[in-house]
């Protein structure tokens, strides 16, 4: 069974649309919305749809803590695969089957939807500085793990049950955990694979990383990646 985990922070205008899109998926799928202590009507809007389990975190934990909560819920519901799907409409549900394919065929534990693998130019507009930031994280990931991950900041990911159990205990406890998660997974012998996806621009709301905060973000995330790479293997529970 598949669980789609949708971490949300102040996404009252998007969450309904995201859930509508996801319910078009066939059959055996449960939707888990993790509302990370939003200050708007995200929780109500999600509950009104009656399509998802809505978990309201009493305090803001950041993306890392929210996603981990979703994974814990998915495991309790006996899900065997999970997909992380952003609550801001950037991801398209049509790619979920592509993300899951390598997991169902036992070729990967974590599959990342990459914006930079597709051959045709995509519509995803990215600022100059964001491109530099992503390039820098790509190179840094290569140095630390020896593997090329073209889109280490992509939040569109699928997890097999081994990865779910691992991340339920060890998920990076950080606001923007995606690049850390890549290093953590590879260093702990989880198989990480990328498949091409296209992402959309956000419909409503602002992106969570401001221009000013991004330098601090880069320092923090690279430091965290570095120390994750230094650490010994985590024990698998």
């Amino acid at each position: 069974m598949l669980a789609v985990i949708i971490p949300c922070y102040n996404e009252q205008y998007n969450v309904g649309r995201v859930l509508d899109e996801l319910t078009l998926l066939n059959s055996d799928t449960i939707l888990v919305v993790v509302n990370d202590a939003s200050t708007d009507l995200t929780s109500q809007k999600a509950k009104e749809t009656n399509k998802a389990f809505v978990i309201d975190l009493p305090i803001n934990l950041g993306v890392g803590g929210a996603v981990q909560t979703g994974i814990l819920k998915a495991l309790r519901l006996n899900a065997t695969q999970a997909v992380k799907f952003d609550g801001d409409c950037q991801h398209s549900s049509e790619y979920i089957k592509d993300l899951l394919k390598p997991i169902l065929q036992n070729e990967a534990d974590i599959v990342i939807g990459s914006r930079f693998l597709s051959e045709e130019p995509d519509g995803f507009k990215s600022s100059f500085f964001r491109k530099i930031g992503i390039k820098l994280l790509q190179v840094f990931t290569k140095i630390l793990t020896g593997k090329v991950i073209t889109d280490p900041t992509s939040g569109f990911r699928a997890y097999g049950s081994k990865a779910m159990n691992f991340m339920a205990v060890n998920y990076p406890n950080f606001d923007y955990p995606e690049p850390e998660e890549v290093v953590l997974a590879i260093k702990n012998d989880l198989k990480v694979l990328e498949v091409p996806v296209k992402m959309r621009e956000r419909f409503a709301g602002k992106s969570s990383i401001s221009a000013l905060g991004s330098v601090y973000y880069m320092i923090k995330v690279m430091l965290a990646m570095f120390f994750i790479a230094l650490r010994k293997h985590k024990k698998m529970d």
Partner: peptide, 19 residues
């Protein structure tokens, strides 16, 4: 400091100033 971070006794975010 590095040893403390490696052992997860200091979180990376709180180690920036020390480093």
């Amino acid at each position: 400091i590095v040893e403390l971070i490696k052992r997860c006794l200091i979180k990376e975010a709180y180690s920036i100033l020390w480093l």
